[in-house]
Design a protein around this nucleic acid. Structure first.
Length: 842
DNA sequence: CGTAGGCATGGAG
DNA sequence: ACTCCATGCCTAC
C-alpha cells in the first residue's frame, strides 16, 4: 500500500507497515487504518459497505445533513449525536474523535465546520447521498482556529445548508450555546433518572443484573438529557444532540434496551431512490415530501432498516406534538402485513425496533405495555416474543381493537413515537394512499391521476385484507393448486410493494421516454442496425416538453404543445423538438401564433375530447400493465394516440363507435367507419402506416437474407439435409407468423426468438403474438412496456429518418398487407374485431 | 369443530 | 451463510 500519511492532524503517522486491515470494502479488499489512531487514511472510509454496515454516519445538528465523522468506524460506534465523542464497540470507552483540542463551547462549532467538506470537494462515490438527505463526508484535517464566522466558514455553511438558511442556523447555534450554558447537566440527569424509573416501561427488570440496571439508568439519562437539550431547538430532524462535556473514560453502557441476544447491525445500504434523495430534491420543499427520518437515536440509526425509519413529515410532527402537547420523537414505523392487521391481533414488531424502543423482556410471555394513540386514548398490549431460530420474534398482542379504531388495514402504516421526556410510547397510523408512504416508492403521479393504491392495489387489496385464518387460503389453493406460489407472492407484502413500485416506475419511465430529447449540442452518429438507421448520441438526452402528437385525416402529422405562460395550445410541426420550458414566443413555425395574445389553436371542446381520449388511452395502458389481459398492442396505442389528434378536423362526434366501446371513445377503433370509409391511403405516411411498412420491409429483407444464407448452407451441408430443412422451415414459419402479426398491427418487435412455439391458432394469425404463452416476461415487457415505449419513441422521432422510400414496397408485399388485413389478420383487442381496429384496412 | 396460542418454515434481503 | 419476519401449521382448549 505504500507509505501514507495519516489524515489525522494529531497523528500524522507516516509509515507503510502500520496500516492495518479495516472493514471489508464492497469492491473487495479492505480499508486500511492507521495503526496509531485507527483512522482510515484513504477514501475507503467512505465506501458504501463501510458507512452503512458501520456507524460512522450521523446527522449534523448544524445543517441536518448526514455527515461522516471520519472516525475509524470499524472500531468505534457513536453513542452521541454531537461531534465530540464516540464509543468503542469493544471496550465501551468513550473517546474523542478530534484529539487536537478539547471540545467546548465555540470550538465545537469550529470543529464541526472544519470537518465539513463542501459538496464540490467531495470525491466521487456512492456516499454522495444516502437516499434520505445529502451526505457530507467529514475530513479530519484541522483548518485552524480562524474566526468562527469568517467568510470561509460562511461559505462552507452556505454550501452545506443553503444560503437562505445560514443566518438562521447561526442564530440557532448561538441560542443553543447560550442555552447550554444554563443547563445543569447533573441536575438534569438526576431528574431524568426519576422520570425514567417512574415510567411505565422504563423500569428496569428486577431480575436484571445490577450493572445492567445501572447501565440502563446511565444510558436512559443520557438519552433523555440529549433529548431534553435537543427538543427546544426546533430541529426538523429527530436528532438528539449531546452538547455536554465529553467525559474521557466514562464507561458507556450498551444499549439500555438492548436485550436478548445482541443483534447484528442491520442497517443496509441506502435507499438511493428515496423521494427526497439527492441534492436537487433537497433544495426543494423538503417539508412537503415524506422522507425517511433517521431514527430517534444513534442506536436505532445503526440498527434499523430504512424501511422502518419514521417518515413523518415536519408538518405532521408539529401537528402531532401540538395535539399531544408534548415533544414527539418519531421512532419507527411499519407497513401492516396481512397478519398484523388480521384478527389474530398480533402485530409483529421488527426485532431491532422492539429491542431499541421497547422495554427489555426476558420471558417469552413478556409484559403488558401501555401505548397511547394520537387522540390520547391508551391501549394496553402484551409485548412479548417467541423464540425463533435462536433469536426472537417480537409481537404486540391484542392490537385488534386499536387497529380497528385507527381504521387501518394491511398495507397501511402504523407509526411508533415517543413522548419525551417520559418515554410514553405513541402509536399512530398513516394510510398508504400517499405516494411517499412507502420508502421504496417513487413520488410518481400515475398517468391516470389515480393514487397507486387505487390502481396498483386494486384487486390485490382484498387478498391483503384479513382473511380470518387459513380457510380462505385453503380454498384459494384448492381452487387453483398451480398458483399456490403466486398466491403466496401476492399476499407477500414485500412483493406487493415492489410490484407496485415496479409498475409505477415502468409507467414513469415510459412517460419519461416521451420527454427525452437529444441534447441541442449533440451531433448524432448514424449507425445501421438491421438495415435501419439509428441516431446515436454521445451526450445524454435532455428532457423536453411534453407534447401530444396528432394526425389529421389528411395524414398530416403535427404535435400540440402548451405554452408555459398562457397555457394555450399551439399546433407545431411533428419534428419540432421543444425544450422543457416552452412558450408561445418560441413558436418559430407559425408567425401568427408566436404570441400569447394569439388565440388558442385548439378549441376547448376539442381539447376536452382530446384529453378524454388520452385519459382513456392511459387508463387502458395501465389496465393492461396490471392485468396483462387486455392486449391492445403498442401499434394500436400509437394509432390511438395518432388519431386522437384528429380533433381539429374530425370531431369525435362524427365517428362511428364500436358498440363495445364506451360513449365518448374516439380511439382508433371507434373512429373507423365500419364501411371502410376514411381508411388510410396506400400512400399514407402517418406514423402507423410508416411503421408498419418499415417493419414489414425489414422483415422481408431479413427473410430473404436468411433464405439465401440457408440455401448457401444447404449447398455445403448436404449430409444434413433433413435437419437443415427443418430449421429452415421453422424459421420461415416464424417469419410468417411474425409477418402476420406485424400486418395485424399487433406485432412490432421482430421475432428472433427461435424457442418460441407457435400454436395452431398463431399459425392462423389469430393470436396476438406479442404474448408468448411460454414466456411471461415477454408478455409483460413486450406487450406493455417495450413495444409501447418503442413506438412512442418512434412517434417522437422524425419519421423520414427511418423510411427511405415509403412507397417502394413490392406489390406482392402490399397485397400481402391487404390480404392479411382483409382476411384473418385481426388484431385481437378484447371484444373488438380486427377489421375495425386496423387503420391499414384498405 | 372452531379458535387462539405458539412455534416452524421458507422467502427475501 | 445468516437474520429477519410473514405466515403457515400444529396443538390445546
Amino acid at each position: 500500500m505504500g507509505s501514507k500519511n495519516c489524515m489525522n492532524e494529531a497523528c500524522r503517522t507516516t509509515t507503510s507497515s502500520e496500516w492495518k486491515k479495516g472493514w471489508s470494502l464492497k469492491s473487495g479488499g479492505f480499508a486500511t487504518l492507521c495503526y496509531n489512531c485507527g483512522l482510515s487514511y484513504d477514501n475507503s472510509v467512505f465506501c458504501e459497505t463501510f458507512h452503512f454496515k458501520e456507524s460512522g454516519w450521523r446527522e449534523c445538528r448544524l445543517c441536518g445533513k448526514i455527515i461522516h465523522c471520519g472516525c475509524a468506524a470499524s472500531r468505534y460506534q457513536y453513542e452521541y449525536m454531537d461531534f465530540g465523542g464516540i464509543s468503542c464497540l469493544s471496550c465501551a470507552k468513550h473517546l474523542e474523535i478530534q484529539p487536537v483540542q478539547p471540545v467546548q463551547d465555540d470550538s465545537m462549532v469550529l470543529m464541526r465546520e472544519s470537518f465539513m467538506q463542501t459538496p464540490g470537494d467531495l470525491p466521487s462515490g456512492p456516499f454522495m447521498t444516502n437516499g434520505v438527505k445529502d451526505v457530507y463526508p467529514l475530513v479530519t484535517e484541522n483548518k485552524g482556529n480562524d474566526d468562527k464566522f469568517s467568510n470561509e466558514r460562511l461559505l462552507h455553511l452556505t454550501k452545506a445548508v443553503g444560503a437562505n438558511d445560514v443566518i438562521s442556523k447561526l442564530e440557532q447555534l448561538r441560542r443553543e450555546e447560550s442555552m447550554l450554558k444554563t443547563v445543569d447537566a447533573q441536575k438534569c440527569m438526576s431528574n431524568l433518572r426519576q422520570q425514567s424509573s417512574s415510567s411505565s416501561f422504563l423500569k428496569p427488570d428486577i431480575g436484571r443484573p445490577k450493572q445492567e440496571v445501572k447501565d440502563t439508568f446511565e444510558s436512559l439519562a443520557q438519552q433523555s438529557l440529549n433529548f431534553a437539550l435537543a427538543t427546544p431547538l426546533g430541529s426538523s430532524s429527530s436528532v438528539l444532540p449531546f452538547r455536554g462535556e465529553i467525559i474521557e473514560g466514562v464507561e458507556q453502557s450498551k444499549s439500555s434496551f438492548q436485550h436478548g441476544k445482541s443483534t447484528k447491525q442491520t442497517l443496509s445500504k441506502p435507499v438511493k431512490h428515496s423521494p427526497a434523495a439527492g441534492p436537487e430534491t433537497n433544495k426543494g420543499n423538503i417539508t412537503q415530501k415524506r422522507f425517511a427520518r433517521t431514527p430517534a437515536d444513534v442506536r436505532g440509526r445503526t440498527q434499523l432498516l430504512p424501511r422502518y425509519w419514521p417518515k413523518i413529515t415536519d408538518q405532521e410532527l408539529q401537528q402531532l406534538s401540538g395535539d399531544l402537547k408534548s415533544s414527539i420523537v418519531p421512532l419507527f414505523e411499519k407497513i401492516l402485513s396481512a397478519s398484523d392487521a388480521g384478527r389474530i391481533g398480533r402485530l409483529v414488531l421488527p426485532k431491532a425496533c422492539a429491542e431499541a424502543y421497547f422495554p427489555p423482556i426476558n420471558q417469552s410471555e413478556g409484559i403488558p405495555i401501555r401505548i397511547q394513540d394520537i387522540k390520547g386514548k391508551h391501549w394496553t398490549f402484551q409485548f412479548r416474543f417467541w423464540p425463533n431460530n435462536n433469536s426472537r420474534m417480537y409481537v404486540l398482542e391484542g392490537v385488534t381493537p386499536c387497529i380497528q379504531n385507527m381504521q387501518v388495514q394491511a398495507g397501511d402504516i402504523v407509526t411508533f413515537s415517543r413522548i419525551d421526556p417520559g418515554g410514553q410510547l405513541v402509536i399512530g397510523c398513516r394510510k398508504a394512499t400517499n405516494n411517499g408512504d412507502v420508502l421504496d416508492s417513487h413520488a410518481t403521479i400515475l398517468p391516470n391521476g389515480n393514487s397507486p393504491r387505487e390502481t396498483s392495489y386494486s384487486g390485490v387489496t382484498d387478498t391483503l385484507l384479513p382473511t380470518g385464518g387459513r380457510t380462505s387460503d385453503d380454498s384459494m389453493q384448492q381452487s387453483n393448486p398451480m398458483s399456490e406460489k403466486k398466491l403466496r407472492n401476492i399476499k407477500n407484502k414485500r412483493l406487493l410493494m415492489h410490484n407496485d413500485d415496479a409498475l409505477e416506475l415502468r409507467i414513469t419511465w415510459e412517460e419519461a421516454q416521451e420527454l427525452l430529447r437529444p441534447s441541442p449540442s449533440a451531433k448524432p452518429t448514424i449507425v445501421l442496425v438491421e438495415d435501419l438507421e439509428f441516431e446515436e448520441f454521445d451526450e445524454p438526452p435532455i428532457f423536453g416538453k411534453r407534447t401530444i402528437f396528432t394526425s389529421r385525416l389528411s395524414g398530416e402529422q403535427e404535435q400540440l404543445a402548451q405554452c408555459d405562460i398562457c397555457s394555450k395550445w399551439r399546433r407545431l410541426p411533428v419534428h419540432a423538438l421543444l425544450s422543457a420550458k416552452w412558450t408561445c414566443s418560441d413558436n418559430i413555425w407559425d408567425s401568427n401564433r408566436c404570441s400569447c395574445s394569439a388565440a388558442d389553436d385548439v378549441s376547448p371542446r376539442d381539447l376536452e375530447a382530446l384529453f378524454t381520449c388520452n385519459n382513456e388511452f392511459k387508463r387502458r395502458k395501465i389496465s393492461d400493465n396490471v392485468s396483462k389481459e387486455g392486449e391492445p398492442s403498442g401499434l394500436d396505442a400509437l394509432a390511438t394516440i395518432a388519431v386522437l389528434g384528429d380533433i381539429g378536423e374530425s370531431s369525435t362526434g362524427a365517428t362511428t363507435r364500436h358498440p363495445r366501446h364506451r360513449p365518448g371513445c374516439s380511439c382508433i377503433v371507434c373512429i373507423q367507419p365500419p364501411s371502410g370509409k376514411g381508411k388510410h391511403e396506400p400512400t399514407c405516411k402517418c406514423n402507423v402506416c410508416s411503421t408498419v411498412k418499415r417493419r414489414f420491409k425489414t422483415l422481408m429483407m431479413r427473410k430473404k437474407k436468411r433464405q439465401s444464407e440457408r440455401e448457401a448452407e444447404l449447398a455445403h451441408e448436404k449430409d444434413k439435409p433433413a435437419l437443415a430443412k427443418i430449421c429452415f422451415e421453422k424459421e420461415e414459419e416464424e417469419d410468417d407468423i411474425a409477418g402476420n402479426a406485424l400486418l395485424n398491427m399487433n406485432h412490432h418487435q421482430e421475432n428472433e426468438d427461435g424457442n418460441r412455439m407457435p400454436t395452431e391458432e398463431a399459425k392462423k394469425g389469430r393470436l396476438d403474438l406479442n404474448c408468448d404463452p411460454y414466456r411471461e416476461e415477454d408478455v409483460i415487457a413486450e406487450d406493455n412496456g417495450m413495444s409501447l415505449t418503442t413506438l412512442m419513441n418512434v412517434a417522437t422521432l422524425p419519421f423520414d429518418m427511418f423510411l427511405e422510400k415509403p412507397n417502394d414496397l413490392p406489390s406482392l408485399e402490399a397485397s400481402m398487407i391487404e390480404d392479411n388485413v382483409a382476411g384473418e389478420g385481426a388484431m385481437l383487442l378484447p371484444g373488438v374485431s380486427g377489421q375495425e381496429n386496423n387503420p391499414e384496412d384498405g
